[in-house]
Design a protein around this nucleic acid. Structure first.
Lengths: 262, 262
DNA sequence: CGCGAGCTTGATGCCGATCAATGCATGTGG
DNA sequence: CCACATGCATTGATCGGCATCAAGCTCGCG
């Protein structure tokens, strides 16, 4: 289990103001440094020796600001870098040839994006910011070469990719065999757990995504998501006011996920 | 697109007879060698320089025979190695705390298994042989250390993992937004394409898995799978006799996958 | 203040689950 | 070698959960 971290302070305002457009920012000017990042216990540097971390610092060449609604990368784009979410919130989605698309994940601070692009040297999905966000840019060629020198970094990279595979197994289980209530319960538990690991309250949260995006992720229509929220509220499990949620009975959520009425 | 390879010859009988139990076999006695394996164009060695491949040969320490129905590894087991399927056919499945389980993939010759275990040092799903099979054992520690020396191998390993992530995105799309006929059509197209890459006919195939296993993978009940097969047969798209299939109208299958009646 | 994106809630219908029975192949022991 | 068991597949009848269609509602914002 990752070490909990106190709620991160807001970035200093001077830094946030640059976000009016997608702007690459030179590392030197901002002193980007994993070693001093408040996300270092959650992000790629987990478990690295101080020496290794210095080298990783050197690799993080820039940050990039992405405004709400803008794409960090899109399907078809050449793959160059992974991205670590520093602040903000993203969704990734794949699109079928026809209009349909599927949200494949939501990423918050400290989580990595872009693994989909390694296999074909092109991205195969879109990453979209759900609020004004900042990412650290990790040029993949450099990351590979660095991880050839530092076994700990190599291992960490492999672990992160492996966990992404395992997470998707969980989503497949959810999509393949759970009913609407179970899906939403599983989703909420996952969300609160990740927020808790970042020092936020596990009982009070603000959704960053619409009902439609939740529905796409869970294989449900937005009306079903909405109705299920209402039902949880009627049952006293949740307090719902728009995107503001309060978990009243976490045990009930857990029980739902493990029930087998299907 | 991978180079097609002629249908692989059956293993020599002396070698197959050892499969009465799960038996580790010393490499030396069997001359295991990626460089002479007829799967080298499909497996981990893709694109390696001859020198690198010799080193990979040295790493493949043994083969392991797994009889139909036996597990190659199970959830909870310590993670030590990846496995490359040499002959045979596997499924991987995750289990929820209650009885439910979900088939997360089917693996055939040249495909790699075991990535689920890297993240937590323990396997998180079961790998079960669907027919008598053989795998090459790739001790992961050695694979990492080798891929620190050889950039091509490192890159190849990352690509394989990335493609696994992308494949799962596709399954999520399928589970989240397709109807039964589309799911089965997508499944069949994927299967025939992979068989074709291995030099088999893309129109005539024998399923190695039951209707129930297909259903679990596709998020359907076995009756629905069976009915959908029957419908495809009535429509002249498929000829179905038990597990023996013949694709009569591949275009119809493709059209189904891209249709959007949902 | 009024517009529009997002959310809620109701009425209805359909796809696939469920329950149930039968068919078909393989294998095993009498 | 047949009788029977067993596992898997097919097919039918019915049911239910979620999608769909259709109104309103809420709230943030120009």
């Amino acid at each position: 289990m990752p070490t909990p971290i106190p709620a991160e302070p807001l970035d200093d305002p001077a830094e946030r103001r640059v976000s009016s457009k997608v702007v690459p920012i030179r590392a030197a000017t901002l002193k980007v440094a994993c070693s001093s990042c408040n996300l270092r216990e959650l992000c790629l540097p987990v478990g690295l020796a101080p020496n290794d971390m210095d080298r990783l610092d050197a690799l993080v060449e820039s940050r990039r600001a992405v405004k709400r609604g803008e794409v960090l990368y899109g399907a078809g784009e050449a793959f160059r870098s992974l991205y670590a979410v520093r602040t903000g919130f993203f969704k990734t989605r794949v699109a079928a040839e026809d209009g349909r698309d599927q949200v494949t994940g939501f990423q918050m601070a400290g989580e990595l994006l872009g693994f989909d692009g390694i296999g074909s040297e092109r991205h195969t999905c879109d990453a979209v910011a759900l609020e004004d966000s900042q990412v650290c840019v990790l040029p993949f060629g450099q990351l590979e070469s660095l991880s050839r020198q530092f076994g700990d970094l190599q291992r960490q990279l492999h672990k992160v990719m492996s966990r992404e595979i395992v997470r998707e197994h969980g989503v497949m289980l959810l999509l393949g065999s759970m009913r609407a209530e179970e899906r939403l319960a599983a989703f909420l538990l996952n969300l609160t757990q990740r927020l808790q690991a970042r020092g936020f309250s596990p009982t009070s949260l603000v959704l960053r995504m619409t009902r439609e995006e939740i529905g796409s992720y869970l294989g449900l229509k937005l009306e079903t998501v909405s109705r299920t929220f209402s039902k949880f509220q009627d049952d006293g499990v949740l307090e719902v006011r728009q995107r503001q949620l309060r978990v009243l009975d976490e045990a009930a959520l857990r029980q739902l996920v493990n029930s087998t009425p299907c």
